[in-house]
């Protein structure tokens, strides 16, 4: 679908939410919600998006919305979806619905991981969207298991002896693929049509779907607000955040940079990696490059691109 056609879809997530200026979660949410063709019930894990979009007595959601707690967005939407199935079966309601849960990386990779895994295994007809900004941004930039190696966060600070986060991020998308659910995709807002197509696909499949979407946080990344979308393109061009999808177990690459860029370019534009460019830390950037190359190679192989 061309964007000007996409713009004819109805607005489901309104302005007047209180996400930071330049927050990547804004366009991600807006585009995904516009991809739903049914009325929806949206669930959200505690986090930036939830806090900013539903400050009493205001809701930025034109659909029904439920926030329960931090770690249980998937379980909560499981319950809503089960209620819908039961009430439909009994003829008490008639309307088809889409069921969506949004969680940040903290609410998805970490504290909400068990609830997410359970919901996916049980096969609820729901779409789980992780807007991955790589740390606990809502509480003030603490490291999560999605935080990339080297990042300076308030709980993995760059200090005199430890140069920021020492571990590589968890590959949650792969773990979700291992749940053998019908659709899993990794997406990014710099490709809005790809993101919307993936969201539509996720809504259409019968059963659970999982979308992992990169959502820059200018505050946590120490990047400029206007660079939010540009950075997600750099992430794809450096292969730090590749775009791919897995439909019924079959891997497919969605973006192959014409000229693969060095991770340097990704790291340099974000204050959270600033310390890596200090003398003596060169090896960390080299190792990140090596790790990124290996990961990219694996994805290419899985997608049948080599």
């Amino acid at each position: 679908m061309k964007l000007k056609e996409a713009a004819r879809t109805s607005e489901r997530f309104t302005g007047g939410h209180r996400l930071c200026s330049g927050c990547g979660a804004g366009p991600v949410t807006n585009l995904i919600m516009r991809s739903s063709k049914n009325p929806a019930v949206v669930g959200a894990a505690t986090g930036c998006l939830e806090v900013s979009s539903s400050i009493y007595p205001y809701s930025a959601w034109k659909d029904s919305f439920i926030h329960n707690a931090f770690e249980n967005a998937a379980a909560t939407i499981s319950g809503v979806e089960a209620a819908h199935r039961s009430l439909m079966k009994q003829g008490k309601i008639e309307e088809d619905y889409d069921f969506i849960a949004f969680g940040g990386d903290g609410g998805t990779y970490d504290i909400g991981f068990q609830s997410l895994s359970g919901a996916m295994e049980r096969g609820h007809n729901m779409v789980y969207v992780c807007y991955d900004n790589g740390a606990y941004m809502n509480t003030g930039i603490q490291r999560s298991s999605a935080t990339p190696r080297g990042a300076n966060t308030t709980t993995s600070p760059a200090g005199k002896v430890i140069p920021g986060k020492e571990e590589y991020r968890k590959e949650l998308t792969d773990i979700m693929v291992a749940h053998n659910i019908p659709y899993v995709a990794q997406a990014s807002p710099f490709k809005p049509q790809d993101l919307m197509r993936k969201a539509q696909k996720a809504f259409e499949v019968d059963g659970p779907a999982f979308l992992n979407v990169l959502a820059p946080c200018p505050r946590g990344w120490r990047s400029r607000a206007e660079k939010t979308i540009e950075l997600t393109k750099v992430a794809a061009d450096t292969c730090v955040w590749p775009l791919f999808e897995i439909e019924n177990g079959k891997w497919k690459l969605n973006y192959n940079p014409k000229k693969k860029k060095a991770v340097d370019e990704w790291l340099r534009q974000q204050g959270r990696f600033k310390h890596l460019f200090k003398k003596g830390n060169e090896h960390i950037i080299e190792e990140i490059q090596e790790h990124t190359d290996q990961r990219w190679q694996i994805i290419l192989e899985r997608c049948g691109e080599v």
């Binding site: 319950g79 809503v80 089960a82």
Partner: peptide, 19 residues
Amino acid sequence: VESEHSAMSATVGASAAGA
């Protein structure tokens, strides 16, 4: 569900959904 935490969470979701 996979835990009691999720049991109560899903029950909350279902109840809020009018069930």
